[in-house]
Design a protein around this nucleic acid. Structure first.
Lengths: 188, 188
DNA sequence: ACCTGAACACCGTTCAAGT
DNA sequence: ACCTGAACACCGTTCAAGT
């Protein structure tokens, strides 16, 4: 595999400034924060932003890679602590909570589990799908989860539950309840 | 109640042209079709569009009132033909199908069942909610639907199921299956 | 009373010119 | 190799001037 060529010092500095500022901007203004504004706040020409991140999805992915990684690890932690079925339910809860609380994450995860999925987010898509797969297969093995659902179905439905929750004042008051309705339906 | 003042002939003509063109534009380009383009295609200054429809939601609502009315009537038709529980399920299916196939309708129904709901769409919001209420209460009476769900919950969750379905190639291949997972969870 | 369209303040994206 | 920022083609929205 080709080693990634190290960036020039100024390029690396700009890249990191952009990431930092973008994270703040997405947190503040949501997933549709102005890219031009991000470049300006990072003290960088707009072209530089495009050089590093060819589109909004690429920037979103770069900003939230860590959060996605964490969700993946969380799946394994829960798998060690809880029975498979419970681990899946709890993981889905945390995924939903993340997509609601960490503004911008939802858009990214949404396109990650969408079919016409951008090649650029294959990375985080496969990461989420493999985490889901481990929990789904274990729960099916255990016999508590329907056998006719695939990992990607579960992720899409969780995305739907987040969307439904957000319709209530954009909050999380109903998240547990809405999710439990889904998990009732998923039960074997 | 105050009688609505009849519009001047040219105003009424513009209003109708705008509605017609907007319906085409939303169908073609989705709910975020360019308003400026709609005005141009209707042969009207952009200010005229704003005079009749102060914002995008207002225009969306005007375009889809009929479709919403139809969904409401459909609820009652189904209630006459089917057992309460089945009527609710079938109605939700048709609602989801509508929001996926009639581009632009989803955005409108989404904000209709959202809490921070614009006063302007109270009309179609109450319409959908009352249709849902009739089916929900009947099904609860019958004993096939959980008693801890409210009509608005059901509408929000249906919106979530549509969203989940759209993540699969924007199609309806999985709609029945995803919806049935939800209705399993809703069963008393 | 209603319409027009220029004007404004924003977008995202590209690319020639600079270092 | 990378950066800059002007330039372009778009938005939505407002409002003075016209009928």
């Amino acid at each position: 595999m080709a080693q990634v060529k190290p960036m020039r010092a100024d390029a690396r500095r700009n890249y990191e400034r952009l990431l930092k500022v973008a994270a703040e901007a997405f947190a503040e203004h949501g997933e549709s924060a102005s890219l031009d504004d991000i470049a300006k706040r990072a003290g960088v020409g707009s072209g530089t932003l495009y050089r590093h991140f060819p589109n909004r999805q690429a920037l979103l992915e770069a900003v939230y890679v860590d959060a996605i990684e964490a969700l993946g690890s969380r799946a394994d932690e829960l798998a060690r602590k809880l029975a498979p079925g419970e681990a899946l339910v709890e993981w889905l809860y945390e995924v939903c909570l993340g997509t609601i609380e960490v503004r911008g994450l939802k858009s990214l995860l949404g396109s990650a589990v969408s079919d016409g999925s951008n090649a650029a987010l294959t990375a985080c898509a496969t990461h989420m799908k493999s985490a889901a797969q481990r929990l789904v297969e274990a729960a099916q093995q255990e016999g508590t989860l329907r056998r006719d659902v695939e990992p990607v179905d579960v992720l899409r439905l969780a995305h739907g539950v987040s969307t439904a929750s957000e319709l209530a004042n954009g909050g999380t008051q109903h998240l547990r309840r809405y999710l439990s309705l889904l998990t009732e339906g998923l039960r074997a």
